[in-house]
Design a protein around this nucleic acid. Sequence first.
RNA 1: GCCGCGUUGGUCAAUCGGCUAAGACGCCUCCCUUUCACGGAGGAAUGACGGGUUCGACUCCCGUACGCGGUACCA
Length: 527
Amino acid sequence: MILDVSFPSPKLLFLRRMSHKKVRVRFAPSPTGGLHLGGVRTVLFNYLFARHHGGEFVLRIEDTDQTRYVPGAEEYIIECLRWCGLDADEGPHKGGPYGPYRQSERKALYRQYAEQLVASGHAYYAFDTPEELEAMRELEKSRGNHSPQYNQRIRRTMHNSLTLEAAEVKALLDKGTPHVIRIKMPEHAEVRFTDMIRGEVSFQTDIVDDKVLLKADGMPTYHLAVVVDDYLMKITHAFRGEEWLPSAPVHILLWKYLGWESSMPEWAHLPLILKPDGNGKLSKRDGDRLGFPVYAMNWLDPKTNELTQGFRERGFLPEAFVNMLAMLGWNDGSGQELFSLDELVQKFSIERVHKGGAKFDYEKAKWFNHQYIVKKDDAALATLFQPVLEEKGLHPDPAYTARIAGLVKERCHFVNEIWDHGFFFFTRPEKYDTDAVKPKWTAEKQAFFETWTAALNDLEDFTFHTLEEHFKQLAVEKNIKPGELQLPFRIMLCGGKFGPPVFVIAETLGKKETLERIKLGLAAIQA
RNA sequence: GCCGCGUUGGUCAAUCGGCUAAGACGCCUCCCUUUCACGGAGGAAUGACGGGUUCGACUCCCGUACGCGGUACCA
């Protein structure tokens, strides 16, 4: 017999549309380490969806596995959200009407629901010890069962309230025997639901096992906790990674068995972010291997003391990081790629999220950052660049730094590259690329610079335009092609073949410094 | 193995049955600039495969292949 369990039913869909419930979404990470790029994107999509619909965004910490708890990870996640500008409306850091927002602090809540399921016949107690489970798996494997599951067949052979006499179960329970509560998957049924991204998805219940709902330590597993908390926190739309799709039928059945079917959120399983080379989920390892960050911010593992670099510390602007992430799996169809957060909020729609995974392209990420650096105003850039200067013991006037930032930002992918492209504005060159000049150096050129230096002393209008005119005019008089003199001039001012237009550099440096550098440069060329 | 989900250039991707298949990143050539970048003009490069359905299929259906995910008292 095929029992068709289809959610949500057309009637429910209708009722839901009529009710206009306030949109509530949540990001529910487990605090086990650094926050992965994919995690931030899940946050982003949650945030955008919530804001777009005038709803609320909740941060919930899923710390049900006490063995995997990592100190500092929760604070780290909160700081990542803050940095990205995607802070939650409710969460452990700011409270809210549906708290507590840490599952470890909600522990007492879950047991009653698990018991309720046992009472209604949808779940059962299981007393099997880890050793017994292991033995079962070994036996099954030896029989050629590739991945042994605690399923409809196996549960009949195990130590649980389905196989034991009621009195015996009661005795075991009274004695405080360690046990878990497992869901009793229905036989020969089909669970079907509509995913906002994938459309209709269906599963046969026969192939999914009796997942543990409540662990022996009294903590719920993800399966129970996510359903109970989404219900209690009135979540209307649940976004999560594609890796959760296979366990969706368990969650959906739980919503039904708990009697909450009419409040079940709509589901959206987001595509994965893949590694650039080869296939598979992008991992921290890939970043280390290929030389780019994977975590949002620096993460110092308290256990190993290993530091993993993040996008923030690498020099990414949060706006760029967020924009880049948004385009990994979503677009508005217009071809536009640069969006402010407000624009994203306005234009985001879950229907336009891709089904397939996207390979992460670091070059494209850099391009996004470059775009935002160019866009950013010079003073703000200068502020961000300030620490780099201070680290070098330099304390220039902020207005000057801003001017330099404006001059060189077009050639920077990262804020700290302002130094690489404009260090000579802050300090005299220590070495000169004389190889670029010497081979074609002549006495005439030498004379030109000597004459020009003298003339410069009397030049009142020390602006790039006048300088250029003056320079070229003199070159013509001396019968030298102006172009042949510009490179040497550049080398004298910067030390090498880089930087903004050379007369702009001279103007920015000012007359005194320019003259000084010509003198120094000339000496270096002759040396 | 089983189950699920995917599959348009190297990468991100548009297309919702009419395609001579957009755009962006990257790459290459040229122009601008005797630095680099920006900017501009070009270029190479794409529908996994096989069957249907249809006047017409990248688009719909079915297989196959490939990839990924899941298969824990982890999330």
